[in-house]
Design a protein around this nucleic acid. Structure first.
Length: 202
DNA sequence: CCCTGATTCGC
DNA sequence: GCGAATCAGG
């Protein structure tokens, strides 16, 4: 395969979106990630600055240790992400009353904040998500690494758990699924296949 | 061991 | 220009 305009275009687009070289290679097909990286360099876009009014990068001499790629796009803004913890709509009445539907103890603070609290953006209703996925999340939240915002990296699940206004708030922090912002379990509930979508014939 | 991008260098 | 091999790192 050769680098046709189309392929280069795809490469540029995906690279600009922060996709990894291997992912781009997979998408393009017929090339390895090395080929992609090589091309990226030859195109002179090794720096993922791409667009956005974020030129800066005056002296690229040092390596700030911290991953600069993360500052590009992903991370941050967990609030925009869908919230887990569905409402106690249909809770399988089999657990202890001290635990919520996820088997997590309900803290007093949490109880206190909910009635008074306001925002808590609309959450995907539990019954729209596969029970398996939810079950997985429930398990995962028990073993989550409970990271703080600043501890998040491209490799840590950025799924927020709990109420930001409470001490009982943290990010999952488990190993992310390749190319995704969440761990496998959370990817499962975050990326649901479009439910009712009809493919139109062309 | 999985992965990431960066660099080199024969082609 | 291309990309496998290699390097350096998480």
């Amino acid at each position: 395969m050769s680098w046709t305009d189309e392929r280069v275009e795809t490469l540029k687009k995906m690279w600009g979106e922060g996709q990894s070289a291997s992912q781009i290679a997979k998408e393009l097909g017929g090339v390895t990630r090395n080929a992609v990286i090589g091309k990226v360099h030859r195109l002179g876009l090794s720096n993922r600055a791409g667009s956005a009014g974020a030129p800066a990068k005056a002296a690229p001499k040092e390596k700030p240790a911290a991953a600069p790629a993360a500052a590009a796009k992903p991370a941050a803004k967990p609030a925009a992400a869908p919230k887990p913890k569905a409402a106690p709509a249909s809770t399988p009445p089999k657990e202890e009353p001290e635990l919520d539907e996820n088997g997590i103890p309900i803290s007093a603070a949490r109880r206190a904040i909910i009635p008074a609290g306001q925002p808590l953006p609309p959450q995907p209703s539990a019954n729209e998500i596969s029970p398996e996925a939810l079950a997985k999340v429930s398990e995962v939240e028990k073993t989550a690494k409970k990271l703080t915002l600043m501890e998040l990296t491209e490799k840590t699940c950025k799924w927020p758990v709990g109420d930001p206004a409470t001490d009982d708030f943290w990010f999952c922090g488990l190993a992310v699924q390749q190319g995704k912002p969440y761990c496998e379990a959370h990817v499962g509930v975050a990326f649901q296949p479009m439910s009712s979508r009809r493919d139109r014939r062309r």
